[in-house]
């Protein structure tokens, strides 16, 4: 935020296309000066601070399918790109089958902000601090993207190129996000450390997701993703390896947590120092792994 932040929004034109194609075409015709508008929670802040100054905002919220949320016990969960986080949190199906996603979404900002914020928006911002990104990756989320060449799918795990950068191209509109049915007995947790107890951005965010897997020596497959401690949302593959190789106990979990600490590459910023982030990555990873492991053992 600069001292010159505007009191109001800069000038732009609001465009409300009626079809995806129309929207895509407009974005392509105005490449570099148009941007799709979803919840606006991020766009308006950046426009006001002078960071972004697009000529057009293309409201894609009301396009077909953008507001649907559906669950099929075989195919999984599909969340339209414009479905706000509070709707996701309130959804019975999400509560029953994707508790991890619910937990991650609930940790975002405030209730009123979540009336506008969306999971897809959270992903597309590609902020290393995105609270729901870890859950989306570990749950195997895939984005459906309407682009120039038709519809394509982008797994979230490989979606990010750099801070704020994704595989999206001009004219692309993410229409929904899909999650497969979680593995039998799956458990997950999101532990977020902010400066306040709630509503803050994360200093460190740890997502852990695991399920019983008879094909690995430990009997469990447990994965871990980190927020705010690397330029991109980070999945620490070593954690999965450490926790499949041999049977799990607290020492093993600590080993995995230390692997997470070594894998992360945090920086010093106004929110916290790199040093603190590193040790917190270890401590919170350990705690999160312990929660999931204990849950899994209870099965």
């Amino acid at each position: 935020m600069s001292i010159d932040a505007h009191p109001g929004l800069p000038e732009f034109d609001y465009i409300k296309p009626t079809t995806l194609k129309e929207a895509s075409d407009f974005l392509i015709a105005h490449a570099g000066e148009a941007r799709p508008l979803m919840g606006g929670t991020d766009i308006f802040v950046r426009m006001r601070s002078g960071g972004w100054n697009d000529k057009y905002l293309v409201d894609v919220k009301c396009l077909e399918g953008m507001n649907d949320i559906s669950y099929d016990p075989h195919k999984g969960l599909s969340i339209g790109a414009a479905v706000n986080m509070n709707r996701v949190i309130a959804s019975r199906e999400v509560q029953d089958n994707y508790a991890l996603l619910l937990q991650a979404a609930s940790s975002v900002a405030s209730y009123q902000l979540r009336t506008r914020a969306t999971i897809v928006g959270n992903i597309c911002n590609a902020s290393p601090a995105g609270d729901t990104i870890g859950a989306c990756i570990l749950l195997g989320g895939v984005l459906h993207v309407h682009g120039n060449g038709g519809i394509r799918q982008e797994p979230i795990k490989t979606f990010f190129k750099g801070p704020g950068e994704t595989l999206l191209r001009t004219g692309d509109i993410v229409t929904s996000i899909h999650f497969p049915v979680p593995e039998e007995g799956a458990r997950g947790v999101y532990i977020k450390l902010g400066r306040n107890k709630a509503s803050d951005l994360s200093i460190v965010g740890v997502t852990v997701f695991g399920y019983p897997d008879v094909n690995v020596p430990s009997g469990y497959r447990i994965r871990l993703a980190l927020a705010s401690v690397a330029p991109l949302p980070l999945v620490v593959d070593q954690v999965e390896a450490i926790l499949t190789e041999t049977s799990i106990d607290e020492d093993r979990l600590m080993l995995a947590a230390e692997a997470a600490m070594h894998a992360c590459t945090p920086i010093d910023d106004v929110r916290a120092s790199a040093r603190y982030r590193k040790v917190m990555t270890r401590n919170l990873s350990f705690n999160a792994l312990k929660v999931v492991w204990k849950d899994l053992k209870k099965l």
Binding site: M1, R195, N196, K197, A198, S199, D200, L201, R271
Partner: peptide, 9 residues
Amino acid sequence: VDYRIATST
């Protein structure tokens, strides 16, 4: 965002 004050929680 970064000048935090106490909240209801």
